[in-house]
Computed example of a mutant assay.
Amino acid sequence: MAGQAFRFGTDRWDPTHRFETSWLLSPWLLFLCRALICLYVFTTIIFVLAWQCAHAITGCTASQAQFSYFTSLTYWGIGFYFLAASMHTFTYARSGVPLLDRLPRPLQALHSALYSTIIVYPFIVTIVYWGLLFSGSWFTEVFAGWSNISQHGLNSAFALFELVVPRTDMPPAVHMAWLILVLALYLALAYVTKASKGFYPYDFLDPDKQGALVAAYVFGIAVGCIIVFGFAWGAIWLRKYVTETKLGKHGKFANKGHGYGAGEDMEMAKPQGSTTA
């Protein structure tokens, strides 16, 4: 895995357009769904920022601290992924050749890595929030309930959509290392936040309150990341097995360009699995 970590692959990139097609939806409908999710995510982000500035006692302080929280960073990532995915799907539906195919190989590999974060991190955010951070009492304000459901509930629904509906292939195993690295970088950011702004984004990272349990929490989340990655990988494998092997639904393609019909060999080349970032 270490030897593959910085290789982008030399095989043909995604020859059957798995990133832009679905076994269930036409390319135009897949584009519409991804575009609507993108719109909802960025609308949520902007509204939350504006609401906090207008209603919080401390003014825009909460909004200014947004990038200190893994939840917010992950939600921004979801928004940008669906923005890119909808753009690639649109160009494929319109011309048969997605914009992603025209990008340099490193950017294609980074899109693959971004996809892996989208099908892993939202589940971690949801599990940690409702299992560890949620007080147990439901929110008294409609805004608080809606914003938390959007960022700690619908985030996983969006990830599940990407697991089930598109034809994406299983992510390469090397992406586990990058997922853990990003979590480690976030841990460093949390302590930079403490040094620069005077607070820990999450109480379970505070050694003064948790003591040695901080290491247990960090290790547990890292192990959880590997488990969720395995779940996502298995879910994609199961979806491919059921839809393609058992049901024969090889995908709905654009009428133009380089789409592949159901009677053709859908695995003529490795579409995604050998690509790393």
Rank of each mutant, 00 (worst) to 15 (best):
A2C: 13
G3I: 03
Q4F: 06
F6W: 00
T10D: 15
T10Q: 09
R12K: 10
F19G: 00
E20S: 08
S22G: 07
L25R: 01
L25F: 06
L25I: 01
P27T: 03
L30Q: 11
F42P: 01
F42I: 10
I45W: 12
I46Q: 13
A50E: 11
Q52S: 09
C53Q: 11
A54K: 15
T58D: 15
S63D: 04
Q66N: 12
F67E: 12
F67T: 13
F70D: 04
L73A: 06
G77D: 08
G79K: 05
G79W: 01
F82C: 07
L83Q: 02
L83Y: 02
A85M: 06
S86D: 08
F90Y: 11
F90R: 05
Y92R: 01
Y92G: 00
G96V: 08
V97L: 13
L100M: 03
L103T: 01
L103F: 10
P104I: 01
Q108I: 00
A109V: 00
L110P: 00
H111G: 00
S112E: 05
S112P: 01
A113I: 06
L114H: 14
Y115S: 04
V120Q: 10
P122Y: 07
V125H: 01
I127E: 10
V128Y: 02
Y129T: 07
Y129P: 05
W130T: 03
W130F: 03
L133W: 02
S135A: 13
S135C: 03
S135L: 07
S137R: 14
S137D: 14
F139N: 08
T140N: 10
E141C: 08
G145L: 14
W146K: 11
S147G: 07
I149S: 14
N155D: 15
S156C: 10
S156M: 09
A157D: 06
F158Q: 04
L160S: 10
E162N: 05
E162I: 03
L163D: 06
R167Y: 13
T168M: 12
M170Y: 06
P171K: 05
P172C: 12
A173Y: 10
A173Q: 12
A177M: 15
L179K: 09
L183D: 14
L185H: 10
L187F: 13
A188G: 15
T193V: 10
A195Q: 01
S196G: 03
K197M: 05
Y202H: 02
F204A: 00
D208E: 09
K209A: 08
A212V: 11
A215N: 08
A215M: 09
V218T: 09
F219A: 14
I226M: 14
I227K: 07
V228F: 13
G230L: 15
F231Q: 09
G234C: 14
W237N: 03
R239E: 06
K240L: 15
Y241P: 02
V242S: 10
T243I: 06
E244G: 10
T245V: 13
K249G: 02
G251V: 10
K252D: 13
G257E: 09
A262M: 04
E267V: 05
G273W: 11
S274R: 08
A277R: 07
